[in-house]
Design a binder for these strands. Sequence first.
DNA 1: CGTTCAGTTGACTAAGGTCAATTCCCGTGG
DNA 2: CCACGGGAATTGACCTTAGTCAACTGAACG
Lengths: 187, 187
Amino acid sequence: MTELEKYLSRIVNFDKAELDEISNLTKELTLNNKDFFLKEGQICNKICFLLEGLIEMTYIDENLEEHIIEFFFPNSFVTDYVSFLSNTKSDCNIRAISNSKLIYFDKDALNKLYDKSLNFQKFGRLISERYFVGFANRIKKTKLTPKQRYEMLLTENPELLQTVPQYKIASYLGISAEWLSKLRGKK
Amino acid sequence: MTELEKYLSRIVNFDKAELDEISNLTKELTLNNKDFFLKEGQICNKICFLLEGLIEMTYIDENLEEHIIEFFFPNSFVTDYVSFLSNTKSDCNIRAISNSKLIYFDKDALNKLYDKSLNFQKFGRLISERYFVGFANRIKKTKLTPKQRYEMLLTENPELLQTVPQYKIASYLGISAEWLSKLRGKK
DNA sequence: CGTTCAGTTGACTAAGGTCAATTCCCGTGG
DNA sequence: CCACGGGAATTGACCTTAGTCAACTGAACG
């Protein structure tokens, strides 16, 4: 059983034939460090599953400043789901920040799948729901102060601080790199 | 055709029988100003459709401070979708802030529906996706400064400032009521 | 008319940003 | 093995934004 199949099986109770059908749709993709998976202005028409490596998703605001909005780790889906769903140009960049191996579905393939059976529809629904729960929690965290957000990251995701340079963490938390450094020093 | 049916028809191409089936599952609910639809600690097992009135969703942080995370307007769905989906206790309050009329589905009814046909699964998926797009945009906005968030609200949703008291707007924006007042004065 | 609660205003304070200088780390070429 | 060059992190001085608290205004409603 592949990593993708393991992951999927935890979400929906697919039978062997269904898993095969999904696996047959996937294509492989290799990204080197700093390669883009998606550039601002493109429409995202893929959903990726990250096998190994590390990916960042950034957003460019109206002042042309780039903010990290998400890190993606192996065994999770990588996509600009908003662009994907609404078929609109992405305002995000998605970029490998270490050499990465992925597999992906493209949109047409996925939509065909959805129309094929209840289980596949259910799968699509559950993917959305998972994404959604993650984002909803993010919104709640934004009501915290930067310092609280940093402390929460420390307890929930300490390994992130080892694997990602500090200025990227700062961007993710929405604070300046200098201030993050000062926060860390204060301990 | 009811408002709900109109709304649904814009999402999925249901036939008459399907729409009837959905409508038959709904129950009516009236909330007076300040009545709760959901209290912290409860599991949300309903999805409501707001017919008239105004609803707020708030979140109580670890310092026991209450923050508004969403306003709901007529012809939209009202639920703590996270609690609903993951079957966990909500950390949110959902409360009418004017007299409101709603109809709702409960979870069991909806799940039965989902298993009935592809179109209903699709409906569930699309509901999630819509919710999701809304939340994703919220996350991007949190990278802006409070002032920028206020200005964005002004241009995108000016009527909100008429219908909702200012201290609630401040809570929604994540700033103090005094500071919002000062921002407004500076124009 | 008082009460009450939302909104405003001002003085003060604290959190966090900005800029610049410095140091640290690490890879690369000699 | 060393020198140096560049990006990341730290530190300090200074500034801006926003929070806090308290006093005041103002409208709404009995």
